[in-house]
Design a protein around this nucleic acid. Sequence first.
DNA 1: TATTGTTATACTCTATAACTATA
DNA 2: TATAGTTATAGAGTATAACAATA
Lengths: 140, 140
Amino acid sequence: MESPFGIGQSANRFMRRIQSGMHAKVRTLGENVAKDIGPHGGFILNTLAEGEPMPVQELVRIMARDKSQMTRKIKDLEAKSLIVRTQCPTDGRVSLLSLSDEGRDIQKKLQRALTSVIEEILSPLSEEEQSQLAQLLQKI
Amino acid sequence: MESPFGIGQSANRFMRRIQSGMHAKVRTLGENVAKDIGPHGGFILNTLAEGEPMPVQELVRIMARDKSQMTRKIKDLEAKSLIVRTQCPTDGRVSLLSLSDEGRDIQKKLQRALTSVIEEILSPLSEEEQSQLAQLLQKI
DNA sequence: TATTGTTATACTCTATAACTATA
DNA sequence: TATAGTTATAGAGTATAACAATA
């Protein structure tokens, strides 16, 4: 389990645990909205929170997803009034995305939930090991 | 980016890169079969290779996926003659799964491809850091 | 009664290509 | 011509519950 291959397997299971942990947790939040935006919806809100307003293109880059997926998901979130779209004043092709107040509210709840899910998964690691892991992952 | 939250984001991107890297690579293998079994199909073959014969239940546990998904995927792979199912002699409820010769052949190709994709992604890390990462991920 | 595995359904994510509009 | 974003479509993964068969 020390080959690159093993790393892939472990990382896969790690992500799976985050995913199903969040799925379970979000249901307890009692937020219909949170449940209805899907994992990607939450990911988008969290990403926007790190730097808004953000062009669609940058969101695509950061999330490493296809732009056509983004278009659809953004439309969903916009229809649910969680994000707001404005035209870029200097480039007519560019849409800038921001969180609405409601979107920001949900984003905070989701981020707290996600943090606690990940904390739980990381609990077998010491503080030092956790920051080691963070650094290694960030490096790649 | 040192919070648990940041770790989640990095891990997510890591998995994404593996996923799209494999998608691109598998196309170059010229193996129609490999392309048609999907990421999970490959994952199942790889998991079986680590310990066959394996009951469905254990596959489900290792892959941390839902059993209903497994049922369908297993049926696919069986129809493509990549895996073989035998009844457990001591427990009539249990199906044991093994790789067929063709399945093993494809599994080896996929594992090589996956290994090289991951190696590429991990290349910014030194050998020591890579084994550190492997250990940390395995611990959780 | 509990466990192994299957079926059915509805939803979400992913890949691709063709397209519009602006630069 | 190149880039930002949209549309359409087909394929794959995910969650849930209800079910049959065996232990």
